[in-house]
């Protein structure tokens, strides 16, 4: 983090156009914004509202030297490592959940010196996006102080000019591109989610460019009818992609529950073959289809109906 980054982020954003115009594009077109060696922030958290349709397309197109950042990372970051697209992960946690054990591909890459795991506490990473979203170079916090996390991350402390208290200064994080999946958006990019918002709002407002995929594209009137559900305004979104089941096999709150059997298959493949197992997963589920809609069609209506029914049962009535 340098003064240049902070000032440049502002100058660059000032230079963006903010027209109210149709921004609907295909995933293939949308992901062209991502260049090699850039920093891609992935919306959602763990296996919730992960922008899978966008990630699968990025993996299909192929990149190299990417940095990926995410609050809690699931196996999607392993796909970026195993495919050779990324070699650096900025996160607070990587895994799927206790029952699936440690992340095998991450271990292979980090323990082998092939990838870097830049570790922050959950709040510290959230405040990094928030500082950037606020347009300031850092935020003071009481978290991560005294820990080895603070040391290896190279953080500094700051003394409060009013109380002399010692606080951690968390540096702003400006991703080059943020990829998010939402419940609905209009063609201008006004984006709404139901349920928890994870770190999506700050991540998007921190990023240089924002790609949003949506379960459905709705009329601007429908957005206006529930304005408090709008998470991002049109001027904070660059392009919009229509992607039904765009978080599958992860969950989309209220719409479909995570497909844990799909996770089982992935973990079995990695246990059997390490990163090669993850590459076989990519061949089958990403490269085996022309686009994400075809992958979803391959999942089949019965399985998708089951995931929808499970989500329906989890809505409190």
């Amino acid at each position: 983090m340098t003064t240049a980054d902070f000032r440049q982020a502002r100058a660059e954003l000032e230079g963006h156009e903010r027209p109210v115009r149709e921004k609907l594009v295909t995933a293939e077109e949308a992901l062209r914004v991502v260049e090699d060696d850039q920093h891609v922030a992935i919306g959602g958290t763990l296996y919730s509202r992960t922008p899978m349709a966008l990630l699968f397309e990025l993996l299909r197109q192929g990149r190299s030297g990417l940095t990926v950042s995410r609050p809690l990372s699931c196996y999607e970051v392993e796909l970026f490592l195993a495919s050779g697209a990324a070699r650096r992960v900025v996160t607070s946690w990587v895994g799927i959940g206790l029952q699936w054990g440690l992340a095998g591909v991450l271990r292979e890459y980090v323990e082998g010196g092939l990838a870097t795991f830049e570790e922050w506490s959950h709040l510290a990473l959230g405040l990094r996006y928030k500082a950037a979203a606020m347009g300031v170079p850092f935020l003071p916090t009481l978290t991560m102080l005294g820990s080895d996390l603070a040391t290896v991350a190279g953080t500094s402390t700051v003394t409060c000019p009013y109380t002399n208290e010692n606080l951690l200064a968390v540096p702003a994080l400006h991703p080059d591109v943020a990829l998010l999946h939402v419940h609905r958006a209009d063609m201008y990019g006004n984006a709404q989610v139901d349920g928890y918002r994870h770190m999506d709002v700050d991540m998007a407002r921190a990023a240089r460019r924002v790609v949003v995929s949506a379960e459905e594209i709705v009329s601007p009137e429908r957005i206006r009818a529930a304005p408090a559900d709008t998470m991002l305004p049109h001027f904070a979104v660059d392009v919009v992609v229509e992607a039904p089941y765009g978080a599958y096999p992860h969950e989309c709150y209220g719409r479909y529950e995570a497909d844990t059997e799909h996770f089982d298959d992935y973990v079995s493949a990695v246990r059997a073959g390490g990163a090669d197992g993850a590459r076989r997963y990519l061949d089958e589920h990403v490269h085996g289809y022309p686009d994400f809609a075809a992958f979803i069609a391959g999942v089949g209506p019965e399985r998708l109906a089951r995931q929808r029914k499970q989500a329906e049962e989890l809505m409190y009535r």
Binding site: L72, W93, G95, E119, S121, L123, T143, L149
Partner: peptide, 8 residues
């Protein structure tokens, strides 16, 4: 896996 929210 890492800190997650444990440090916080």
């Amino acid at each position: 896996p890492g800190s997650g929210g444990a440090n916080d």
